[in-house]
């Protein structure tokens, strides 16, 4: 009986203590883990007298599923560009018109009018980057600007290559490798893609996310990866270099959106505007190690980033990149089948 009354009391106390008081000065951010600068949050809190709460998600799909169901209590989220059109289409985000906000003038021209949000009616740039290959050049000295590292692995790297298991990224890379167009549903191309993937897999050691640590420690000698991750790896081991595959690589960008069900819309808008300030964007970049799409932020960024070939895409490679688009549902269904075949 003791135990019972105790637990009931505890339960009630918990319920009472945790019901959220919806005070005026709050902002609830829903973001990828480890992706927002604590210092920048403090600055925002101080500047606007707002209490910021950050909650993490681990994938675009989780975030989409949760926000679509609603009742989450989030005000702001950071979906990737391939998901932004879905969020818009499903009516999940508020048209805050960042294009008309005070700080919009700072947005770099190539990110001011993106295809996934024409005229920036909904979104503000948060971070952008590329997906390429990372190679430990102590082990392999050949050309690293190619998907061959992953799909036609040189002998030196066989059994030491990792592939980050993002279905859409891997499929995009493989399609480019066989000379196809992104989001293609062409069976001829996809057949080649499947054959390339299935043939390449025996040379891979793993398919996992934990690349920074594993490349640093030497478990992997090469991997497909995001550029910010590559930068961190090089800073640990100068022999590690990032390659921009000439067959074609993707640009991605994550974006600040305000949810339709947001309770703190004004604060959320303030935050969107805040993120377009070069100094703030730079502060954030210094933490998550990606570029931010805000012109003039370079001035405030750490020196190891402004000159980093991972962050600043070298001129010669720029033409090979393309922004990844949202593929049609029936195409995604084909990709899922190939992916299942690959990992079965």
């Amino acid at each position: 009986m003791n135990l019972k009354s105790m637990s009931m009391a505890a339960g009630l106390a918990l319920l009472a203590s945790t019901s959220l008081a919806s005070a005026a000065g709050e902002l609830n951010i829903y973001n990828w883990g480890n992706y927002i600068s604590p210092d920048m949050i403090k600055k925002f809190e101080k500047q606007f007298d707002v209490k910021v709460t950050v909650t993490d998600y681990d994938s675009n799909d989780t975030a989409l599923a949760k926000v679509r169901q609603g009742g989450t209590g989030f005000d702001v989220a950071m979906p990737s560009q391939t998901y932004v059109p879905i969020w818009i289409q499903e009516g999940l985000i508020l048209e805050t018109n960042p294009g008309g906000m005070e700080n919009f003038k700072n947005v770099a021209p190539q990110w001011a009018n993106p295809a996934f949000d024409p005229g920036r009616k909904y979104t503000v740039p948060w971070a952008w980057g590329t997906v390429g290959v990372v190679v430990n050049t102590d082990v392999y000295q050949g050309d690293i600007n190619t998907w061959k590292i992953v799909f036609d692995t040189p002998d030196e790297l066989k059994g030491k290559v990792n592939v980050v298991p993002e279905m859409n990224d891997v499929l995009h890379a493989a399609i480019k490798y066989v000379g196809g167009e992104q989001c293609t549903g062409d069976k001829e191309v996809l057949k080649k893609v499947r054959d390339v993937l299935v043939a390449a897999k025996p040379n891979w050691i793993a398919m996992e996310y934990n690349t920074i640590e594993k490349m640093g420690a030497g478990d992997f000698k090469a991997t497909s990866d995001w550029n910010g991750s590559a930068l961190r790896q090089r800073l640990k081991n100068p022999a590690i270099h990032y390659g921009y595959p000439t067959e074609g690589f993707q640009y991605w960008s994550d974006n600040v959106v305000v949810l339709k069900e947001a309770k703190n819309v004004e604060n959320a808008k303030l935050f969107q505007n805040f993120m377009m300030d070069p100094e703030n964007a730079a502060m954030n970049s210094a933490f998550h190690r990606y570029a931010n799409g805000i012109a003039g932020s370079e001035k405030f960024m750490p020196a190891d980033m402004t000159s980093a070939p991972e962050v600043v895409v070298p001129e010669e490679f720029k033409k090979n990149g393309e922004i990844l688009q949202t593929c049609a549902p029936e195409v995604t269904a084909l990709y899922t089948k190939i992916w299942t075949e690959l990992q079965k």
Binding site: L20, N28, Y30, W32, G33, N34, Y35, T53, T55, D56, Y57, D58, T62, A65, K66, G71, T72, G73, F74, D75, Y209, N210, T211, I212, E213, S229, R232, H288
Partner: peptide
């Protein structure tokens, strides 16, 4: 937990999950 949590309800495991994706 990841699916049920609302704003400001990260538990230690969900927090760590986010860390691991981007390097622990």
């Amino acid at each position: 937990t990841e699916f049920v949590k609302s704003g400001g309800q990260d538990t230690l495991p969900t927090y760590m999950l986010g860390q691991i994706r981007r390097g622990i």
